[in-house]
Design a protein around this nucleic acid. Structure first.
Lengths: 364, 364
DNA sequence: CTGTTAGCGCGTTCAT
DNA sequence: ATGAACGCGCTAACAG
């Protein structure tokens, strides 16, 4: 926690401008901020009129007054205090987003989509990262609630569905990627069944016969379960393919080694269920001194920026993360608008991006 | 902007629990939230006592009353409304963070550090992404101000120093990575001079003689300027080394090609000034059919998760991003505590991680 | 130790 | 079309 090796300099402040003399006077109570009353007085009107100007009732004001208010606002640099507004109207223009792992590129990409949509509609985003920790999730949810956020976007396995359901009474919730049992909210994510089908059909078409699916540990995350289930179901439909499922972790190296060395039924390929699995697999393949990807093919669900750089490139099924984020916000907006229809599930289709890792099936 | 290929399902709601019948009743004004008054009444005390229990004056309460309040709070599931608190005390427990590019892994890593520090101290983080766009920066700053954030962490080139200086009168600001001229605030980032020195000394020691520095375009970002300046200065100190600087963009491919093909003074290496430059360079080297990294060495400032996977691995100077984030928050906290000492600059040292990309200098 | 009172900055009836 | 008064949920000043 303590800086290991920071060099502390004192910044030379050669500025002679008087303006900076009295800087840094923010005590606990900053009295400097210009308020609605200030504007009203300067414009010679009542607070109510200023309030109308700020809000949606601007039409009710006379040209003359509106103009005076506008000038006063600009002169004083007035900004309405969202906190006070929210306190009164219950509209804080704040959206919360709870993310399981902020360092997962998928989460970031989705978050970028959400954030963009928020800005376009005048909302702001409070992002909380649970680091896959239930206690942190609990704390963050309590915090978000205390800030009167208007809606919540959730991408973290609710291990406490009751608390979430209770929260859902207060505000709309949209789930991203991960479904939570017993929580009846909108859900936006990937069409996992279709994604897995696309992956397998591509592999089969390229001539691969043995497929090892590598997933992160099945911890209840719905998308992981769906992908694995779909994998086994698809295998039944494709008699030419043979497959097995393993999870990342300590045993991965041995599992992949066994898979690669086994006699098998033909060309072999690994199907990584997400970006992290792809990272882990590539690492292992390198450790095993495999020729990437001539000894074994690879296809990944998720597309990361470095996929083109490894070996001859890693074939990917890219998720439309931007859209997923934007759609999640749209759902929220609809609910905030009073929509009470049945919860929807939006399943987006991935996009297949073929690269070198599935182009040279080894001939056995 | 519109979903290309989303499949919309209606979620089957087979739940017969009455509890879910009247869900989704969040109109603009949610009347359901339990307030301090509710707690006071149930406990048979005044609001002030409840307030004392919530705040720092709990010591002033008698055992009996404290216990009754505590029970009432638990019974009702009461959570103090931070907005109302903030309105009164000026303490919203909200920290703002403005980031230039949320999709840059460096930003994410730092943000993770900030977020963790925030949580440890009971603060929450509002993250805004400017997407390198000045107008968005303006909007976001106004928004953050309207939410009464207590402090601001800035990682986006203030093209409007005056607005920032004005904001600085209202709240403490800490700059990350990028210095802003005329803005006298704390600054935490990397010791760029030292980082460049480490890179060059490593390259020289490994036997490289010609070094091409690749930076993102010099758009005023202080850290980029510092790194380039330091590079040219270091070259003067190391007579064995010869070097040049180019920036990413359309001309990069040609620049690198020229560099690789030129006769030169010995083994060649590329020094990438940050993670994005490393991505761009690796891409180009692949396109040029260079053998990674036998034809030309590579060292990068920043360490990305995929560096070990490309070629024999990319040598990196890792930034202590977690610490940078945490330190930024610490600075803020100190200022919030009333510290008015001269602005400080915290420069952290990077960590050299040697991988394959600088281990086999080609013998010329 | 505890309750009463008066706002924080704003939106929203009511009158006018 | 405009202003006065009240309250959102909470803290702080003062009494007792």
């Amino acid at each position: 926690m303590k800086p290991v090796s920071a060099c502390i300099r004192e910044i030379a402040c050669d500025n002679t401008n008087k303006r900076f003399q009295a800087v840094n006077s923010f005590s606990a109570a900053q009295r400097t901020r210009v308020t609605m009353l200030d504007v009203a007085q300067r414009a010679g009107v009542s607070k109510a009129s200023v309030s109308r100007f700020i809000g949606e009732d601007r039409a009710l004001l006379s040209e003359a007054i509106a103009e005076r208010i506008e000038r006063a606002i600009n002169d004083l640099g007035y900004r309405p205090n969202q906190m006070a507004r929210g306190l009164k109207r219950g509209r804080t223009r704040l959206i919360g987003m709870l993310v399981a792992d902020i360092r997962n590129p998928y989460s970031i990409a989705v978050m970028h989509g959400v954030e963009t949509a928020c800005r376009l509609h005048g909302y702001n985003l409070v992002v909380c990262n649970t680091d896959r920790n239930d206690e942190q999730e609990r704390q963050h949810l309590a915090a978000l609630r205390s800030y009167n956020i208007e809606g919540l976007i959730l991408n973290t396995l609710g291990h406490d569905p009751d608390a979430l359901q209770e929260l859902h009474q207060e505000m709309p919730i949209v789930l991203i990627d991960r479904k939570v049992e017993q929580l009846h909210t909108d859900l936006v994510g990937l069409d996992n069944a279709d994604a897995v089908r696309m992956a397998l059909e591509h592999l089969e078409q390229q001539g691969y016969r043995d497929v090892l699916m590598v997933s992160e540990p099945v911890d209840g995350t719905s998308s992981r379960i769906e992908r694995i289930d779909s994998f086994t179901r698809q295998l039944a439909t494709h008699p030419a393919l043979h497959g097995a499922v393993v999870t990342t972790g300590a045993g991965l190296r041995v599992a992949i080694q066994t898979f690669v060395q086994a006699p098998g039924n033909g060309a072999k390929a690994i199907f990584c269920a997400n970006g992290l699995a792809a990272l882990a697999c590539t690492q292992v393949l390198r450790d095993l001194n495999c020729r990437l990807f001539e000894d074994v093919g690879l296809i990944a669900l998720d597309d990361l920026e470095w996929f083109p750089l490894v070996g001859n490139g890693i074939t990917a099924l890219a998720q439309p993360t931007q859209q997923i984020g934007a759609s999640a916000f749209d759902c929220l907006l609809k609910r905030l608008g009073g929509d009470k229809s049945a919860p929807l599930a939006l399943d987006f289709a991935p996009q297949l991006i073929v690269r070198g890792s599935t182009r040279q099936p080894p001939t056995t």
